[in-house]
């Protein structure tokens, strides 16, 4: 028997010389179910059988308005990605919004300042913004010095963003990514310079900070589906439909668990391996 990652036992499969770790049965089954659901939803959406709609997200709609205002005021747009590295769904979602913002800035001939903490974001973001400016027929608007890696240290980065906002006085502040306590510092400095502020994060402890200080806040899932909301591509919308089915399955299991657990029936615990 070979111990699993969780310190459990695993089942040896002698014929192929491999072993499956135990404790992952439910994970494997749920992953497969979800993948089938997503594939099915994409197929049905592309064929036009399903017509999923995402409810209006004022925060995303307001990005155009904020960039337009920045153009009129001849002040820059500041996009802040927080401490997000290049890995993880939050970073991917934030980069999708960054790409859209950069494209809009190019179309409206506005200046975009991008600040971030993780060095790994640098080259990807630079390439992404440059490409967006080229696609927006305003390649001369791309300024490498406006892609600002401030620091990998949380509060050094915070100090950098505070200084940047107070010096450059952006007309729009967009916060999309991973933030912690520094979120309120950023949002308050933006409020002081009179910027329209739009934030999106999955960190539940940071959401209240953004809600009180920003004009629009995308919470949790809203932030992650922002890319899909912007593109409205049927392939991507299909996965959003699948998300609803997954949520339904999750809530059903949750409901069953709420009923069974007080009765002392704990087979769900055994199946799910919790």
């Amino acid at each position: 028997m070979i111990p699993s990652r969780k310190g459990e036992e695993s089942v040896e499969i002698a014929s192929v010389g491999q072993a499956l770790r135990t404790g992952y049965n439910a994970t494997i089954v749920f992953t497969l179910v979800i993948m089938v659901l997503i594939a099915l939803s994409i197929y049905l959406t592309v064929r036009g059988v399903l017509k999923p709609k995402i409810r209006r997200l004022p925060g995303i709609d307001a990005i155009d308005e904020a960039i337009g205002r920045a153009t009129e005021l001849r002040r820059p747009v500041h996009f802040c990605m927080g401490q997000s590295g290049i890995s993880g769904s939050v970073a991917l979602a934030a980069l999708a919004v960054l790409r859209y913002t950069a494209r809009k800035c190019a179309e409206m001939k506005s200046r975009l300042i991008f600040s971030f903490a993780a060095a790994s974001v640098n080259t990807v973001a630079a390439d992404l913004i440059k490409q967006a400016y080229i696609e927006g027929n305003y390649p001369e608007g791309y300024r490498p010095e406006d892609i600002r890696w401030l620091s990998e240290r949380q509060f050094a980065y915070s100090a950098g963003v505070l200084g940047l906002v107070l010096r450059e006085k952006p007309a729009a502040n967009l916060f999309f990514g991973f933030f912690m306590g520094e979120a309120l510092l950023f949002a308050e400095s933006g409020y002081r310079v009179g910027a329209i502020q739009i934030a999106g994060t999955t960190m539940s402890i940071v959401v209240p900070f953004f809600v009180v200080s920003c004009d629009y806040t995308l919470i949790s899932e809203e932030m992650i589906i922002a890319g899909t909301y912007i593109s409205q591509e049927p392939h991507q919308l299909g996965t959003i439909q699948a998300q609803d089915y997954m949520r339904l399955i999750g809530l059903t299991i949750l409901g069953i668990g709420c009923v069974l657990t007080p009765l002392g029936i704990k087979f769900l615990y055994d199946i799910l391996g919790v």
């Binding site: 979800i34 993948m35 999955t202 992650i224 996965t239 699948a242 999750g250």
Partner: peptide
């Protein structure tokens, strides 16, 4: 919020 985040992250990764 966590449930919604996990599900949407999963879907995003599949995308």
């Amino acid at each position: 919020l966590l449930l919604a985040e996990v599900i949407s992250s999963f879907a995003l990764n599949i995308r």
